[in-house]
């Protein structure tokens, strides 16, 4: 098992604070979505998790052991970074070979099979790959790595719809065949919402939500109808966001639906609905906290 525990993690860069007192447990064998707006601190958190950088304070442990300079803990993790980090003159197939050196469990046959499915020519040099194929190439390395913990930072950057679809499907195959912890940081929330089991929302360096997708979606509701009636309903309640279309209004409230509220709304002729993950995320990271 590979439980990741993060305690009181803070990361200061020269001028700004990237992460502020983050405490978090990542349970083994679940698919996590790490969601946050640009500059929220997602990549900093992932770089710290994989010991690419060192925290200002706080600790990260895998199965109780600190990750800093801990080769054994780190060898359990494969991290698909957003940045490009391979020598540009190497060919794809050479990188497959080198990866096997560092990750003995790397499944070269599966990597070749994936390259075939994605139409990636393994004779090509890294520098000649387009943005989309660069992402594909890095995603293949991660998928075939057989590591206990897979971390993806923007895995579908530049991928067309067909290839994104293929990536999500292969991800589920890999996960189903060999249960592992998967952490995905992405901006394409709508596409991946149903693949995720857990969601961590990071906003301005702080964790503002850490729940199962189901729980998170149940922690908010939308109420809609005639604007005046909606306003009447909203007296004494806080709206996280709203949409207006003429006299029609829809308000998102970051609270669980209660029987009483439902009755009040139904008397006013308003309807309730459940927000989608992406919409909820937009409201949550718009200055409001849950």
């Amino acid at each position: 098992m590979s439980t990741i525990t993060i305690e009181e993690l803070t990361m200061d860069y020269e001028k700004n604070r990237a992460l502020v007192h983050i405490t978090l447990t990542i349970e083994p064998n679940k698919i996590y979505g790490l969601l946050g707006r640009n500059g929220a601190g997602k990549t900093t958190l992932l770089n710290l998790l994989t010991n690419r950088i060192f925290p200002t304070s706080g600790e990260i442990k895998i199965d109780g052991k600190n990750v800093i300079e801990n080769e054994q803990a780190l060898s359990q993790i494969y991290y698909m970074m957003e940045a490009n980090y391979f020598p540009e003159s190497l060919k794809v197939k050479d990188v497959f070979r080198w990866t096997k050196e560092f990750y003995p469990l790397f499944d070269t046959a599966y990597a070749n099979e994936l390259a075939n499915k994605f139409n990636l020519n393994i004779q090509k040099k890294i520098k000649s790959l387009s943005t989309g194929y660069h992402s594909i190439f890095k995603a293949i390395l991660a998928l075939a790595s057989n590591a206990k913990i897979l971390i993806f930072d923007e895995p579908v950057l530049g991928l067309d719809a067909y290839h994104r679809d293929l990536f999500y499907k292969e991800l589920i195959v890999v996960y189903s065949e060999n249960p592992k912890t998967i952490i995905i940081s992405t901006h394409l929330i709508e596409e991946i919402a149903d693949v995720l089991e857990e969601v961590i929302v990071i906003h301005e360096g702080r964790i503002i939500a850490n729940h199962s997708v189901e729980e998170l979606l149940a922690s908010a509701y939308q109420v809609s109808g005639e604007a005046e009636k909606v306003d009447q309903y909203m007296i004494g309640k806080q709206a996280a966001g709203q949409k207006m279309m003429g006299k029609y209004k829809m308000v998102t409230v970051l609270k669980k639906i209660s029987k009483e509220n439902e009755e009040v709304a139904s008397e006013l002729g308003l309807s309730f609905s459940k927000p989608e993950l992406q919409e909820l995320f937009i409201h949550m990271t718009n200055g409001q906290e849950v």
């Binding site: 679809d165 499907k169 589920i172 195959v173």
Partner: peptide
């Protein structure tokens, strides 16, 4: 199987 269903529908295997 559960895996086939979750892959073709792109939903979490636990779901």
């Amino acid at each position: 199987s559960t895996t086939e269903m979750s892959v073709s529908l792109k939903i979490n295997p636990a779901t």
